[in-house]
C-alpha cells in the first residue's frame, strides 16, 4: 500500500508534532496555526481565537503546563514515566540514547526538556529517518511500546483543541507508519 504522504510532507508533519510537544506555542507559530486551520482541521477553538493574542497564548501555555510540565502533569511526556519506571529517564532513556547514537543524532543543548526520553524527541528522530527500515526499527523499539497509548490519554485529557488535534494527528501518523 502506498504511503499516504510523500517524504517531505511526512517530515514536515513530524517536525510540527515535535515542535508542539517540545515547548509552548509562541506568537508566530500561533498565527500560522490560525492561518492554516480549516473546517476539517481545527487547531484553535473560537473561545481562544477570540481572545487578545497575549491572553490566547497564556491560555495555551497554561494548558501545556497542565498537560506536560506540571505540577502533577496530566500526561508526563516521558517514556520512563509512561512505562511505569520509578525514576525519570531510566531504562527508557537507555533505549533512546542508543537510538540517537545509532543515527548519529544528538538532542539540542537548548532544548527545554528534562530528559531525552521526551515524546518530542521521538517525533524529532522520526523526522530525521527517511530510511524505511530505520523508521520501522524506531517505531518497534521506542514508539509502539508507549506512544500510542500515551497519545490516547492525551487526546482524552486535553482541554484545548490544539492538543486534542495534535494527539489525533500524531496517532494517525503512527498508524500510517505501521501500515507500511
Amino acid at each position: 500500500m502506498p504511503f499516504t504522504l510523500d517524504a517531505a510532507a511526512r517530515r514536515d508533519l513530524y517536525l510540527l508534532i515535535a515542535r508542539l510537544f517540545r515547548e509552548e506555542v509562541d506568537a508566530p507559530l500561533y498565527r500560522r496555526l490560525l492561518a492554516t486551520q480549516s473546517a476539517a482541521l481545527r487547531w484553535i477553538e473560537p473561545a481562544i481565537a477570540e481572545l487578545p493574542e497575549e491572553r490566547a497564548l497564556e491560555e495555551l501555555e497554561t494548558e501545556y503546563c497542565r498537560l506536560f510540565i506540571g505540577p502533577n502533569p496530566v500526561c508526563p511526556p516521558f517514556a520512563s514515566v509512561a512505562r511505569g519506571e520509578a525514576l525519570l529517564g531510566g531504562r527508557a532513556r537507555t533505549v533512546i540514547d542508543e537510538l540517537l547514537a545509532l543515527h548519529g543524532l544528538t538532542v539540542a543543548a537548548h532544548a527545554r526538556i528534562a530528559s531525552p526520553d521526551h515524546v518530542a524527541v521521538v517525533f524529532a528522530v522520526l523526522a530525521e529517518l527517511s530510511d524505511r527500515d530505520a523508521a520501522n526499527d524506531c517505531l518497534r523499539r521506542f514508539v509502539l511500546p508507549w506512544v500510542p497509548r500515551w497519545l490516547s490519554v492525551l487526546e482524552h485529557g486535553a482541554e484545548r483543541v490544539l492538543f486534542r488535534t495534535l494527539a489525533h494527528i500524531a496517532a494517525a501518523l503512527i498508524e500510517e507508519e505501521q501500515a507500511q
Binding site: 504522504l5 517531505a8 514536515d12 508533519l13 517536525l15 515542535r19 500560522r32 486551520q37 476539517a40 489525533h168
Partner: peptide, 15 residues
C-alpha cells in the same frame, strides 16, 4: 484524509 490535511498544514506552517 485528516492526516493529509494535517501534513499540508504542517508544510504551510513551515517548522
Amino acid at each position: 484524509d485528516f492526516l493529509k490535511i494535517g501534513a499540508a498544514a504542517a508544510g504551510a506552517i513551515g517548522v
